[in-house]
């Protein structure tokens, strides 16, 4: 097993991620923070990141959240990507607004 260093550029947070875990699993396993955690299956889109340096392998991810162009530009879902080198990433995803946070907006919809 190899392990690589993942750097979250936004916060400077780093963690070691084994090659068999996704970037998201690796972060969670060490109780690190920075990338929003959702379904962990490439379906919900909250864990979207941009890989700014490093190499990775990837699996199919929802086109609702990542277009082909984005995927080609290394904008990917962290739960579908495993590191094959040290990786630096930027966080793009966020937890969506929900009605408890903004009741009036929800009613106005």
């Amino acid at each position: 097993m190899a392990a690589f260093t993942v750097t979250i550029e936004d916060t400077g947070e780093t963690y070691r991620c084994p090659d068999y875990k996704t970037l998201l699993e690796g972060m969670e396993a060490l109780a690190k923070k920075g990338i929003p955690v959702g379904c962990r299956g490439g379906g919900c889109g909250v864990c979207k990141v941009e890989i700014v340096a490093g190499t990775y392998s990837k699996r199919v991810m929802s086109r609702d959240h990542v277009s082909e162009e984005e995927e080609a530009a290394h904008k990917v879902l962290a739960c579908r990507v495993k590191p094959t080198s040290d990786v630096t990433l930027r966080v793009l995803g966020k937890m969506k607004k929900n009605v408890c946070r903004d009741v009036n907006a929800a009613i106005a919809e």
Binding site: V37, G38, G43, C44, M95, C100, V103
Partner: peptide, 25 residues
């Protein structure tokens, strides 16, 4: 009521997790 929704959804934790209201497919 809105202030007890946490217990309504997760009775033991008595709070929502962030995913409940925002992670959907």
């Amino acid at each position: 009521t809105w202030d007890e929704v946490g217990a309504g959804v997760f009775y033991h934790d008595r709070k929502l997790n962030e995913r409940f209201l925002s992670v959907v497919t």
